[in-house]
Each structure stands twice: as structure tokens, then as C-alpha cells.
Nucleic acid binder design. Structure first.
Length: 893
DNA sequence: GGATTCACG
DNA sequence: ACGTACGTGAATCCA
């Protein structure tokens, strides 16, 4: 030990990890490993490091084996629950991370972490050094002294409380040594230390205030009156033993020298790599490690990520010439644009990585004469372009009249297939997950939301170049991962071609008659006004019906209707609640109708009107191929997958969706019961298969089997209930969910389910098997090998696990249905082109395809579309699609 | 920006 | 005992 000022920080590893595990919400990385305890530990560590600035540092762990305490008392820590696997799997991760922090770790067979820490604080005391102990365990307070401070975590892990001997005295009226006596008397159920029965903290403190120590209490136990005195006298041995067990052993034979604990900080590159592995993105940003890589340091400029390329800002003839020459060697393309909606986003720039150079082209110069070769390359169907979100790039470029045709590999799409639930689609996040040196996040360069700004040319060039280089670095590893996961065909035969087809549909758009919407909007408006005044009259005053808060006050406080359900913030007023309240007051029905009409007005009349492009009178939605966890598409700006149909009032909206050419028709075809047919196929259930082979009404068939009656005795109510059971089966059934849906008791619902499983034993087996398989593999698959990871399937938390189990049952069904209609779209696109048809595919709504069709092709398409859909993927049961047509989408029913 | 509600499959 | 049906997107209110 030198005489310079030293401060040693001693962390009780096990205690903090436990605290962190139970304090933090569940958290897993993309491979399903739990990381919440490590994350919580790290947050605490960073905070304490910052506040304490130690010169020496140690994390102590309990050794796995029995400690010396067990020798005298077998039940020591006997009452403890076994460590959950979600926690034990985190210890190796934590130890590895601590190594990346360059922090020493000790554990020693036969001793616990607090013994090691106790020994080191004794040494610190003796040698006049300062020590700070961090733990979640109050026992540690016995170590406090003039030189030793104890920090105890409180609610959560990152908040700590400081205990000096003075603080302990003022809080408990005890010296640090008396903390041992305190526990000797009151015991500790978590460590299975008995103490004296009937003695809790209050009594123990009273006894210690009077007698000072356990020994002195026992000496005077004869004079203590009542039940308390009896208990002490009959359990005096327990008290002595408890005190022994609670005493931290401070003579552990440690081999390590003081100097080995010296800590001079971490290597940013090493720590960044460790964080990336754990996917602690927020910590990387918090410590500003995003530039730190294994190869380089955290320095600025090119050293930051050891760029192996030169950025070329394409501005003059020389650069254009170089770029044009490099196009045939191009390895990656990035198109940067404003905003999320590619149909209205302005381009910012392009970056093309080719060999040792990355060329960055400001978007405006894409239209210059020099850019002719670049435009040709973009439009070249054989260019074999690798990029990031080429679907969006195609739409952005299309707005400028530039084609993007040679798409061959998209790292965003590939990453989605590898893990469709990963929320962060950014290149920076993707690099981190793949363990590659990362680049700045777009938000760091551009800002986000209203603060979005294109930086100066130099910064823009650097960032776009980094992105193109990132695409290039990611392409091969992602392609290899796809291969390994058996998703090569899924990618190249289905998703990649589909991306181009979707862009085509979006560019085509669908004609929507503004006048028709406006006309309908007027009807809705007069309805809304009529209902509003009725509601105000019944309430006795005007209020904002659209405010759930005000509405709740009117219904439940003013009118005194019964409260059915509450939300986090107050009364629930959703439709389910209102339907139950209908009999109580006529205002309820009006409110429901008001809700329906205002929804239609704001979302569908006003919302859609805003999206009609004046240039062509069409709506161009944006299908997202990388959002839904099951493999479905999603639709945005606007969403054309949720246009009303169930209620006649709203269904009228569909009359505004018309063909874009006079005399043409809308043709719509939808799969009949695709999910239950998929279930019949993958479960192999004979009864279900037979039902579909015989073209039976599946809900009637279900009713027959569940209620045990012949077809002619199935009434509409039985069929309705059977239909709900079928929905439940597809969603991953639970008695609770079904009972909610059918408004029956859970018991009745459970009986239905049991009946169903008896009638369709193959389905029961599928449900059992798929859950077991998900538990085994950590993921489930669709027929086309699409994957979804379910990290919570092994959770000890019932809710999380149940959710994952239902997802395991549902995803192969919903996902396979999504696979099939996507295949049908690829086939339909081929058919239209091969047959030279003018008909156009416009929309996909999960199980439905919508086309516009010239009159001379109507008969052809009425056969071709359902046939192509039915043949898209052969199952053990027939697939069936129904087709309809009309002058608008409403009529095509 | 989160919570609530509701449109669709 | 636990307490939710599966998957989306958009509008509105309100802190």
C-alpha cells in the first residue's frame, strides 16, 4: 500500500445480482438469453463508479459449494427457493462483462461474498484505507466504521443509501457491531436464521437498547417478563447460534494482494464489444462508446471505426467519372430520404460502396447529365444491387422518375427474417446485434421528429458512406445466417421478389372518389350532430364525449352507472363496457353510435381524403414487410388493411374505392377459412381434415362435435359459440379468453375447450407438441420455415410464459397463412406478366387480394385469381378462395 | 409521448 | 394462484 489516497470499492456480487434480477423487468437479447440482472447490475455499477471514483475495485461472489456456516447448521439458507434458471444463466454473462470492465472478481470455496468483503474491510481499517461496500443485504452494516461506508440498494438497484456508523446510530440507535445482535434476536427468514420467536425488529431494538448485546440479554433473561421472557429462555441457544450465523467472518485466507485490486478504468473498445454482445444499446450511448471498436480506440475521425474506405463526395467531373467506372463493382447501395412515408419523402442522397471507396451523391445531382450512367445502373434489372430497405428506396426514387430494378439482397429484409420481433431496424442496431463495429445512429446525425436536420455535406457524406459500408459488411454474414436457419428459399423465392411486387402495387395505387367520401361524410356529420345534442340533453349539460375522462365522469359519477372495469387512469369506457351498460340508460346506446360515427368520420372520411393524391386521384399505401412478428404485411399512410366492413354504415366507405379506368371492375378474392385449413394440415387432425375435404361449414361441424348433435340440430347460437371456439383455437386458447369472448363462466369455457379437444384430438396434440417444441428450441416455425423466437417460453413468470405459449400455438398458423398468400401474390404477378394481362393487383388484406380488371379480362380473372390462390401451396386439405367483383370494392363482396 | 379506443384479418 | 384471447395502424385526449 502506498501513502497516496486510496479508496477501495467492494461489491457484494450475489446480493446485487439478486436485487437486480427481481427489480428489473424481464429483458432478453436477440438469442433469447436473459440479461435483466446483468443490466441492472451494470446500471448500479456505473452509478457507483461515478459517485465514488474508487482507486481499487472488487466484486466478490459466493462460491458454489457449502460454506463453513453449513457445518454448524444444516438449515442455513435452507428455506431459499432454488435460483431460477433465468437468473443463473446470467452469472457467466456478468462475470464476462466484469472482465471487460477490467474489474477483479473473487470467490473462494467455503466462504460467502460478505466474508471476503468483511476481511478486506478489516484490512482497510487496519491499514488506514477508505473502503466502500455495496450490497443489498442489511447484515453488511456490521462492517461500517470510521473508514468503511456501506451502501445499501433500495427499491431497485441503482438507488443506494449511505450508511456510516453515525447514520446507523441515528436510524437504529445501534453500533455497527450491534447489527449482529439485532439479527441474532430477530433472525432472518431469507437465510433461515431462526432468532427468537416473537421477536421482530421493534422488540429486538428495545432489548438491545436496554442490554446492549445478545449475551447480556441472555444473562438477564430471568428478569424479562411475560411471553417474551419465556421465548428468550426457551430459545436462548437459537439466539446464540443466530448471532454466530449472522457474524461476518473477517479472517478469510486471501491470497491476492491489495495491488491486484487497483483499478484504472476500462478499455472503451472492450467494454463496447461486451455491451454489443449483450445488446445494451442504451449503455453504449450513455457511455458514448458507439465509436469505440475492438480495432481502434474512441478517437475521432477515420480512426473511430478504422474505416477501410475513402469517402468520395461526388461533386465534380473527376468524381463522376470515378463513380461511373466503379458502378460495375458496386457492393452496396443506400438511399437516404426525409420522413417515414416514401410516397412523400424527398431524397437526401445516395451512397454506393465499391471497393476501397464509398461514393456519396447528393440527391439533387441525380438529375444531372453526369448522372446518366448512375440512373442506368439503378434501372438495370441485372445490376444485382445489395442495399438496406430497397423497397423504400425504390419508392423514393420512383417519385423522381428514377427506376430501381436490380434488387438482389436487402439486409433489412434479411435481418427481419432472422428475427422478426427485433424492434430496432436501424443499421447501427443491426451491426451491434451482429457483433460488427457499429456506426452512428441516424438520430444522432439527423436528430428526430421536428428536430430532423440534414447536416453539412461533410457530416452527411461521412454518415451515408458509413451506412453503405455497413450494408456491405452485413450482407455476407446475414446471407450465411439465412442459410444456416434454412430460410434461403423463403428469402430468395418469396420475400425478395415480393418486395418488388409490393412496390409495384403501391406505385399503382387505388383510385378513391373524393366526392363519394365527402358525400358520405356529410351523412355521418349530420348523424354526429343529432346524436351529440341528444347526449347533451340526456346528460343535462355539454361535455367532450370524446374524452374518456369526461365521459367516465358523466356515466359513473353523474348518472351513477355501475363501474364494470377500470383502466390505469380511471374508468374504462370501451365498447365492451358500454354494451353491458346499455340496459341501464338510453344514453349508452347513443354514445356507442357516436363513437362509431366519429371513428368513421375522422379515420376514414377525413383520414382517407387527406391521402388522396391530387395528381392521380389515388391512394398509395405503403406495405411494410418487416414489421409483423408473424410474417404478415402491414399497411401504413394510410392503412388500407382496416377499411370498415363489419357494420353496414362503415362498409359504405368501400363504395369510394373504384377502378382507375372507366369500365373496369374491382375483383376481390379471399381465402375461405385459411387459418383453420392450415391448422388441419399442420395438426393432421383427421376430423378437421375430413370436414374441409367434404367442404363442410367448419363452424357447424365444430358445433356438431362439441355439442354432440347432428347437423340439423345446430342452431345459430350453437354455431356462434363454435365459431368463437375456433377463433380461440387459432389464437392459442385459454378458458379465460373464451369466457370473456362468449360472456360465459370460465368453467363453461373450459368445458367447451375440453369438448373441442376430445372431438379433435389431433389439434390437442399439435397444441401440446408445439409448446413443447418451442420450449426446446426457443422458437417456432411456419411451413415455409419462417421463424419467431419466443424467449419468454421458459419464463418462470406465469403471465409471460402463458403469453409465449399462446404465441407458439398461433404463430405457425397465422404465419403459414401469411406465407401462403405471399406465395399467391408472387404467382399472380407471374401469371399477369406471362399472360400479358392488363389487370393489376392493388391490395392485400391478409387473406384477400384486390385487383382492377378490364372488362375483357373479367372472366379470365374470375377463374385465374381464386385458382392461383388455391394452388399457391398444396396442403393436406384443399385451399379455397371465393371471388367477387363489382364497380367498386363494396360491390365486390 | 403514453394511454385509450377502435377499425381490420 | 396466477389473469390474456393472435396480429396490426390511426385518431384523440391529456399530462
Amino acid at each position: 500500500m502506498g501513502d497516496d489516497k486510496q479508496k477501495v470499492l467492494l461489491i457484494d456480487g450475489n446480493s446485487i445480482v439478486y436485487r437486480a434480477f427481481y427489480a428489473m423487468p424481464p429483458l432478453t437479447n436477440s438469442s433469447g438469453l436473459h440479461t435483466n440482472a446483468v443490466f441492472g447490475f451494470t446500471t448500479m455499477l456505473l452509478k457507483v463508479l461515478e459517485e465514488e471514483k474508487p482507486t481499487h475495485l472488487l466484486v466478490a461472489f459466493d462460491a458454489g459449494k457449502a460454506t463453513f456456516r453449513h457445518e454448524g447448521y444444516e438449515d442455513y439458507k435452507g428455506g431459499r427457493e432454488k435460483t431460477p434458471p433465468e437468473l443463473s444463466e446470467q452469472f457467466p454473462l456478468l462475470k464476462e462483462l466484469l472482465a471487460s470492465f477490467s474489474i477483479q472478481q473473487f470467490e473462494l470455496g467455503g466462504y460467502e461474498a460478505d466474508d471476503i468483503i468483511g476481511t478486506l474491510t478489516r484490512l482497510a481499517d487496519e491499514q488506514g484505507q477508505t473502503a466502500v461496500v455495496v450490497s443489498g443485504d442489511k447484515d453488511m452494516l456490521q462492517l461500517a466504521s470510521d473508514r468503511v461506508t456501506v451502501l445499501l440498494t433500495r427499491k431497485g438497484v441503482s438507488e443506494v443509501e449511505r450508511y456510516t456508523p453515525e447514520e446507523i446510530a441515528s436510524r437504529y440507535g445501534l453500533t455497527p457491531q450491534q447489527i449482529i445482535d439485532l439479527k441474532g434476536l430477530m433472525g432472518d427468514s431469507s437465510d433461515n436464521i431462526p432468532g427468537v420467536p416473537g421477536v421482530g425488529e421493534k422488540t429486538a431494538l428495545k432489548l438491545l437498547a436496554e442490554y446492549g448485546t445478545v449475551e447480556n440479554v441472555l444473562e438477564h433473561m430471568g428478569e424479562i417478563k411475560g411471553k417474551l421472557g419465556e421465548n428468550i429462555r426457551s430459545h436462548h441457544e437459537d439466539a446464540r447460534m443466530s448471532k454466530r450465523l449472522a457474524t461476518i467472518f473477517r479472517e478469510v485466507p486471501l491470497q491476492q494482494t491489495w495491488d491486484e485490486l487497483r483499478w484504472t478504468g476500462y478499455d472503451p473498445a472492450e467494454l463496447a464489444a461486451a455491451f454489443r454482445k449483450l445488446e445494451f444499446k442504451s449503455l453504449i450511448e450513455r457511455l458514448d462508446l458507439s465509436g469505440a471498436t475492438q480495432a481502434g480506440g474512441g478517437a475521432e475521425g477515420e480512426a473511430a471505426h478504422q474505416a477501410s474506405y475513402e469517402t468520395v463526395w461526388v461533386a465534380g467531373p473527376a468524381e463522376w467519372e470515378a463513380l461511373n467506372g466503379a458502378l460495375k463493382r458496386a457492393e452496396a447501395l443506400v438511399v437516404e430520404s426525409h420522413g417515414e412515408n416514401p410516397h412523400q419523402s424527398e431524397g437526401i442522397g445516395l451512397a454506393i460502396a465499391a471497393g476501397e471507396r464509398v461514393y456519396v451523391v447528393p440527391y439533387a445531382s441525380l438529375f444531372s447529365n453526369e448522372a446518366a450512367a448512375l440512373r442506368d445502373w439503378l434501372a438495370d434489372a441485372d445490376a444485382a444491387i445489395t442495399g438496406y430497405d430497397l423497397h423504400k428506396a425504390e419508392l423514393v426514387l420512383a417519385r423522381s422518375g428514377i427506376e430501381l430494378r436490380g434488387q438482389s439482397f436487402d439486409v433489412q429484409l434479411a435481418a427481419y427474417l432472422l428475427d422478426p420481433t427485433e424492434a430496432d431496424p436501424s443499421l447501427a442496431g443491426l451491426l451491434q446485434r451482429m457483433g460488427l463495429p457499429s456506426i452512428p445512429f441516424d438520430e444522432a446525425v439527423f436528430g428526430k421528429g421536428a428536430k430532423f436536420r440534414v447536416p453539412d455535406d461533410e457530416a452527411l457524406a461521412a454518415h451515408l458512406a458509413a451506412k453503405a459500408d455497413a450494408v456491405r459488411r452485413l450482407a455476407r454474414p446475414l446471407a450465411e445466417e439465412l442459410d444456416k436457419a434454412g430460410m434461403r428459399t423463403l428469402y430468395y423465392e418469396l420475400e425478395q421478389p415480393l418486395a418488388v411486387i409490393l412496390a409495384g402495387m403501391e406505385k399503382q395505387g387505388i383510385s378513391v372518389r373524393a366526392e363519394a367520401l365527402e358525400e358520405l361524410g356529410k351523412e355521418f356529420q349530420s348523424g354526429i350532430e343529432r346524436i351529440m345534442s341528444e347526449i347533451y340533453r340526456l346528460a343535462g349539460f355539454e361535455f367532450n364525449i370524446g374524452s374518456p375522462k369526461q365521459l367516465g365522469e358523466v356515466l359513473f359519477d353523474k348518472l351513477g352507472l355501475p363501474v364494470i372495469k377500470k383502466t390505469k387512469t380511471g374508468y374504462s369506457t370501451d365498447a365492451e363496457v358500454l354494451e353491458k351498460l346499455e340496459p341501464y340508460h338510453e344514453i349508452v346506446r347513443l354514445i356507442l353510435h357516436y363513437r362509431t360515427l366519429t371513428k368513421l368520420q375522422s379515420t376514414y372520411i377525413e383520414g382517407l381524403l387527406k391521402e388522396i393524391r391530387p395528381e392521380d386521384g389515388k391512394i398509395h399505401t405503403y406495405y411494410r414487410q418487416t414489421i409483423a412478428a408473424t410474417g404478415r404485411l402491414s399497411s401504413q399512410f394510410p392503412n388500407l388493411q382496416n377499411i370498415p366492413i363489419r357494420l353496414e354504415e362503415g362498409r359504405q366507405i368501400r363504395k369510394a374505392f373504384v377502378p382507375s379506368e372507366p369500365g373496369w371492375h374491382i375483383v376481390a378474392a379471399d381465402y375461405s377459412q385459411i387459418e383453420l385449413r392450415v391448422l388441419a394440415h399442420i395438426s393432421g387432425d383427421e376430423g378437421l381434415k375430413e370436414a374441409f375435404r367434404n367442404e363442410m361449414d367448419v363452424h357447424t361441424k365444430t358445433a356438431m362435435d362439441v355439442f354432440g348433435v347432428p347437423a340439423d340440430q345446430v342452431d345459430s347460437n350453437m354455431r356462434r359459440q363454435a365459431k368463437a371456439v375456433n377463433f380461440g383455437i387459432v389464437y392459442g386458447i385459454s378458458d379465460y379468453g373464451l369466457s370473456q369472448n362468449l360472456n360465459i363462466t370460465r368453467k363453461e369455457a373450459a368445458a367447451f375447450i375440453e369438448q373441442y379437444f376430445n372431438a379433435f384430438p389431433g389439434v390437442r396434440k399439435y397444441m401440446d407438441d408445439i409448446v413443447a417444441q418451442a420450449k426446446q428450441d426457443g422458437y417456432v416455425k411456419t411451413l415455409l420455415e419462417r421463424r419467431r423466437y419466443l424467449p419468454d417460453i421458459r419464463a418462470s413468470n406465469f403471465n409471460l410464459r402463458s403469453f409465449a405459449e399462446r404465441t407458439a400455438m398461433n404463430t405457425p398458423i397465422q404465419g403459414t397463412a401469411a406465407d401462403i398468400i405471399k406465395l399467391a401474390m408472387v404467382r399472380m404477378d407471374e401469371e399477369l406478366r406471362e399472360r400479358g394481362l392488363k389487370s393489376r393487383m392493388l391490395l392485400q388484406v391478409h387473406d384477400e387480394l384486390v385487383f382492377e380488371v378490364p372488362p375483357e379480362e373479367l372472366e379470365t380473372m374470375k377463374k385465374l385469381v381464386p385458382e392461383t390462390m388455391a394452388r399457391a401451396f398444396p396442403l393436406d386439405v384443399p385451399l379455397k378462395a371465393d371471388v367477387n367483383f363489382g364497380v367498386n370494392w363494396y360491390e365486390a363482396k
